[in-house]
Each structure stands twice: as structure tokens, then as C-alpha cells.
């Protein structure tokens, strides 16, 4: 029997090539059917992580609060008060909390495939469920963070307003964007393991270019080309939108919405296709 005869035998009997990447539509259907797996995995991982620390869920909010205190103290002292944004505490807290959502999803996504080797090697399921589980988990952690953020805003004297409800659509868009980032980093670290060493650096760069503790509009006021570049950074725009709706003295400009929507749609669809194209590679090195 020559190899071609075997191929014919296989197709005559309706056999399909094992491990072949299904078409995108079928892939999405398979993923949707196993959505329970992703949500259950996210919940179990969260519970396991929480039970390891004494403060449990407390760390989810305590970490960004400590970060905010650290940055607030350091930059409150170093930066001359005229470059400091108005309502500095509210400004900083929103920046640090929203950024935390981005950076944790990115690093979680980068680790989602390479960190679940034994699972990937023993069961076959659409691998995209692993980065999705990361995003679900981070989204669940985001909710108490946002509540604490609101409490802090009230404490420092921000008035509670109807516009705070705009947090919901902004966070939905940011979740889509983060999903795209998680899918991209999940595949990249499979190809180039060294990237996981660079992820913290990337996250640091995004941190400083997103205007967490300074007002980009003010600092870059006389460097128009740099300002345009900074405005194109979606993380900056998500943070700027939240500030615009929740912290007084931060105007919202239409370009922020356009970039937020554009980044959410483009990043998540590119991430989906990019991740799906690599499906045959995961866990096989």
C-alpha cells in the first residue's frame, strides 16, 4: 500500500486528520460549547490563589491600594506641584486600578498556555479556553477593585453622579481589548519562551506612557507629535475615559471613544485569528 492509497482509504471511510486546526467558525462553536470549562477553571484558580494567602480576596484590592500609596508618595514629593494633575489622589487611584486590570491580564495571558503544560498535553480541547479563563478571572477580580475605587473617590470628595454608569461600557470595551492582548501574548510565549522575561518590561513601558500619575495632555502640551502618539495608546484612552466620567476636571474628547472602540474591535479580532492560526502548535514542543 502506498501512502496515497491510505489517504484514499481514510477519506473513503470518513476519517479526518487528527490534531488538524478546525475552520474558524467550527473553532468558535467548539469553544462556545465548552464555555463552562473556562468559567469553572477561572473560578477554581481564583479560589486556589485566594486560599493560599491569609488575606485571601483582600489582596485583590490591597495590592493596587498599596501601589497607589507608593506612587502617590513618591511622585507627590518628586513632582513639582504645578505639573501635578488636579484631584491628584482620585486621578492616581483611577490610573493605578485600571492599569492593574490591563497588566494582570497581559501577564496572565502570556502564561496561560506555557503554564498549563500538563493539562494541554493530556486533554484535547480548544486551547483558546485557557487565555479566556484568564480574562474571566481578571474580570471577576476587577469588580471588587472597582467598588473599592468608588469608595476611595467618594472619600476624597468626588461627587457620585449618573455618569459613573459609563464605567460599564468602558470596562466592556477594555475587557475585549485585554482579551485580544491575552490571546496575542499567549501564542507569542509559546513560540518564543524568552518573551515572558520581557513582559514585565513591556508592562512598565505601558505604565509610564499611559499617564498613570501625571497628566499626559499637560506634560506633552508643547510636544504635539508625542502627544498624538500617546493618545493612540488604548490603555491611556481607557483610563482617560474612566477619569472623564468619574473625576472632575478631566474632559472627555471624542477621539478617546474612537480609539477605545477601535482598539477593542481590532485587537480582539486580530488576537482571535492569530491565536487560532497557532492551534496546532500548543503544547507540542
Amino acid at each position: 500500500m502506498t501512502p496515497t492509497d491510505l489517504e484514499a482509504l481514510a477519506s473513503d471511510n470518513g476519517l479526518e486528520r487528527v490534531g488538524a486546526r478546525p475552520p474558524l467558525r467550527a473553532y468558535i462553536v467548539q469553544t462556545w460549547r465548552r464555555r463552562d470549562f473556562a468559567s469553572t477553571l477561572a473560578r477554581y484558580r481564583l479560589q486556589a490563589a485566594m486560599s493560599e494567602n491569609r488575606l485571601g480576596m483582600g489582596w485583590v484590592v490591597l495590592r493596587p491600594i498599596l501601589n497607589a500609596i507608593l506612587f502617590g508618595t513618591i511622585f507627590g514629593v518628586i513632582m513639582p506641584s504645578d505639573t501635578r494633575p488636579d484631584n491628584f489622589v482620585a486621578f492616581l487611584v483611577v490610573g493605578v486600578f485600571i492599569f492593574e486590570y490591563f497588566t494582570k491580564t497581559m501577564s496572565g495571558g502570556a502564561n496561560s498556555i506555557v503554564g498549563s503544560k500538563s493539562l494541554v498535553r493530556s486533554l484535547s480541547f480548544p486551547r483558546i479556553l485557557l487565555p479566556i479563563a484568564i480574562v474571566i478571572r481578571q474580570f471577576v477580580e476587577l469588580i471588587p477593585m472597582l467598588l473599592v475605587m468608588m469608595v476611595i473617590l467618594l472619600v476624597v470628595g468626588e461627587p457620585i453622579q449618573w455618569s459613573w454608569l459609563m464605567l460599564v461600557p468602558v470596562m466592556m470595551l477594555m475587557t475585549l481589548f485585554n482579551l485580544g492582548i491575552a490571546l496575542i501574548t499567549a501564542r507569542l510565549t509559546v513560540h518564543v519562551r524568552d518573551l515572558s522575561q520581557i513582559i514585565p518590561l513591556v508592562s512598565r513601558v505601558v505604565f509610564y506612557t499611559s499617564g498613570i500619575f501625571f497628566d499626559l495632555e499637560r506634560v506633552l502640551a508643547d510636544r504635539q507629535e508625542l502627544l498624538t502618539l500617546a493618545r493612540l495608546n488604548p490603555v491611556h484612552d481607557f483610563i482617560a475615559l474612566v477619569r472623564g466620567y468619574m473625576v472632575t476636571g478631566n474632559p472627555i474628547e471624542p477621539f478617546m471613544w474612537w480609539i477605545a472602540i477601535g482598539a477593542a474591535v481590532v485587537t480582539s479580532s486580530f488576537g482571535l485569528v492569530f491565536f487560532w492560526k497557532g492551534e496546532e502548535r500548543y503544547g507540542r514542543d
Binding site: A10, R17, R121
Partner: peptide
């Protein structure tokens, strides 16, 4: 055969 290892060449078909 389980599809967890990609072949260098040749293929595996299954029902």
C-alpha cells in the same frame, strides 16, 4: 494519534 504531537511528516487520520 491523540493529536497532541504534530508529526514531522506523514499524518494520522481518525474517525
Amino acid at each position: 494519534i491523540a493529536g497532541l504531537q504534530s508529526p514531522a511528516s506523514g499524518s494520522v487520520f481518525a474517525s
